[in-house]
Structure formats: structure tokens, C-alpha cells
């Protein structure tokens, strides 16, 4: 049963970006050995905040802390926000340990989204590594739902091992959609794995691309994104202006007040997390920036 809500003294609530709103956990499902997908709904019965693909929320676990988590659900599914969380430490462990009916504090959504409107009429090449598929999934949902607005959809997805692949059934289903190509690979495979083995950049050799008609959306570990950008720019002729990536830095506030997520002149939280690569050229790969 969802908790009831009392909010004394909320006259400033609408204007306080630091104040979480209470949501309850509507479902939790296991994706892999360490990764879970949680869906939350507002505790007060009001429809959940809408979001744009690529945006994130701050999720607060009572007394434990708050974490920036990308929204991984369908942007057109009203009333619910979905997150895919990998347990890598005490705070994420606390988050994935929530059960149905538990509540979470939610702030947001925050940040810049994938430029889905601006790239209409193009081939969209989505390149994801590991948990990086989560913030791209809403973009994939959007493209599949508005299929006529885009030409080809290509998804390249790399994970550490077969057991680490997210959304396996959906990947297969997306691959069966018209004008859609889904290629997955893993860095390390066992003898029983029948799929591809090799880092995500090795998938490029299976593609025929139209570089002048292609936009690329990338999310994954920073080093992986750097390798992918090298491949796109140097070997495939995709322009920096047509490459978008989602960056990660420490975030405490999500609204540019805490200073933690600075990346050169940018705040990842409010100028990003999605950036056009043209803006980050010269910053990406700088050691200890």
C-alpha cells in the first residue's frame, strides 16, 4: 500500500529544487546479477513528472543518501518513472534493495536530453556500453514509436559478459523492427556463448553507414566513449556536430549549486549530461580535468 503524504509548510515546494517528492516503488525486476530496474509512482497520486530521453533524477533513500540515476523508461508512459540501477556501492545497493511499496524521494527530472527533435530525418546510431544502455533506452522507445521521423535505427551494445547484457528480450525485439539493426557484443565470452565477443568498437566493421546522414548517441564508460568517437570521426567520417554523448561526474545537487560535477566550463548536471561532442572536443580525455 502506498504511503500517504503530508506536506506541512510547502508553500515554497514548487520553487525548491532541493526538495525531494515522495514516490513509492511500483515494481522491481532483476536485469542481471547486479542490476535492477525500479519503477516508481508519485505517492500523492498526481501523475509523475514527464521527462525527456537522456534526463536523470535524484533518487533519495531514507537516511542513506541521494544518487543521480538516469531515467530508463518509456517517456510516453505517463504516471511512472523507471530507472535501471547497477549496485556498485552501499548507496546503489540500498537503492536496488527497495521492494514494492517502499518509498523513495525523487527530485527532477534534470539535465539536457538527447536531441531527438533536431535529428529527425536522419539515421540514428546508438552506441551503448554496460549500464550506458539505460539512459539510451528512452531514446530508442521514442524512435520506435515515431518510426517515420527517422530513417535507420542502429543499436550497437557492448557489455562485459553475456550475463551482463541488459534488456535481452527487448534487444531481440528491437532488432526485428523495420529498418532497425541491433548488434550486441561482450568483452569476454564463455564457450557456451553463441553471440559476438569483442569490444563495442569492433561492431563498426559490420555496418554500412552514411556518415553525412548519421547522428550518433553514445553512453558508456568515458574511455569506451573516447574509443567510439575516434572510430566515428577518424574511420567513419561522422562529424563532431553529429555526435552526442552522455557524461558522468560526481553530482550532489543536480542544479549547479554544489560544484561537484564541473567539467571544464560546464556543469554536467545542468549543461549536460548529454552534450554535443563538438562542445567537449579538447576536454574529453584530459587527465584529471
Amino acid at each position: 500500500m502506498p504511503p500517504t503524504l503530508e506536506q506541512p509548510g510547502i508553500s515554497h515546494a514548487a520553487s525548491d529544487p532541493m526538495r525531494p517528492e515522495p514516490y513509492f516503488v511500483a515494481s522491481v525486476s532483476r536485469e542481471t546479477h547486479d542490476t535492477f530496474t525500479l519503477s516508481v509512482e508519485p505517492a500523492n497520486g498526481v501523475p509523475a513528472a514527464g521527462f525527456a530521453p537522456g534526463q536523470f533524477s535524484m533518487l533519495y533513500v531514507f537516511g542513506v543518501g541521494e544518487l543521480p540515476i538516469s531515467i530508463s523508461g518509456d517517456p510516453e508512459q505517463a504516471g511512472r518513472l523507471t530507472y535501471t540501477v547497477r549496485s556498485v556501492g552501499p548507496a546503489t545497493q540500498a537503492l536496488v534493495s527497495r521492494v514494492t511499496g517502499d518509498w523513495l524521494g525523487v527530485r527532477g527530472p534534470f539535465g539536457a536530453a538527447w536531441p531527438l527533435e533536431a535529428v529527425r530525418g536522419k539515421d540514428v546510431l546508438i552506441i551503448a556500453g554496460g549500464i550506458g544502455l539505460a539512459p539510451l533506452r528512452p531514446a530508442i522507445y521514442h524512435i520506435l514509436r515515431h518510426r517515420d521521423d527517422y530513417v535507420r535505427l542502429i543499436v550497437l551494445y557492448g557489455a562485459r559478459s553475456p550475463g551482463d547484457l541488459l534488456y535481452k528480450k527487448e534487444l531481440a525485439a528491437w532488432g526485428r523492427s523495420p529498418d532497425t539493426q541491433v548488434l550486441t557484443t561482450v568483452d569476454y565470452g564463455g564457450v557456451n556463448w553463441r553471440g559476438r565477443v569483442g569490444v563495442v568498437t569492433t561492431l563498426f566493421r559490420h555496418l554500412r553507414m552514411h556518415p553525412d546522414k548519421t547522428v550518433a548517441f553514445i553512453c558508456g564508460p568515458e574511455i569506451m566513449m573516447r574509443y567510439v568517437i575516434t572510430e566515428l570521426e577518424e574511420n567513419r567520417g561522422v562529424l563532431a556536430n553529429d555526435i552526442y554523448l552522455s557524461m558522468e561526474r560526481n553530482m550532489k545537487c543536480a542544479v549547479g549549486f554544489c560544484g561537484h560535477c564541473q567539467y571544464g566550463p560546464y556543469f554536467i548536471c545542468k549543461d549536460g549530461p548529454v552534450f554535443c561532442y563538438q562542445k567537449l572536443r579538447g576536454l574529453l580525455g584530459k587527465h584529471e580535468l
Binding site: M1, P2, T4, G9, S11, R19, P20, G105
Partner: peptide, 19 residues
């Protein structure tokens, strides 16, 4: 203090600190 939270059974109160 930005936020104060109280849990009372199924009831949740999120109070803040700037009235």
C-alpha cells in the same frame, strides 16, 4: 539542513527548512 523527513508507519512527511 535542506530537508527533514519523518516516517510514521505508512505516513511520510517531507519538511523543509525555509519558511
Amino acid at each position: 539542513q535542506l530537508v527533514e523527513l519523518r516516517r510514521d508507519g505508512a505516513s511520510l512527511k517531507i519538511l523543509h527548512n525555509h519558511s
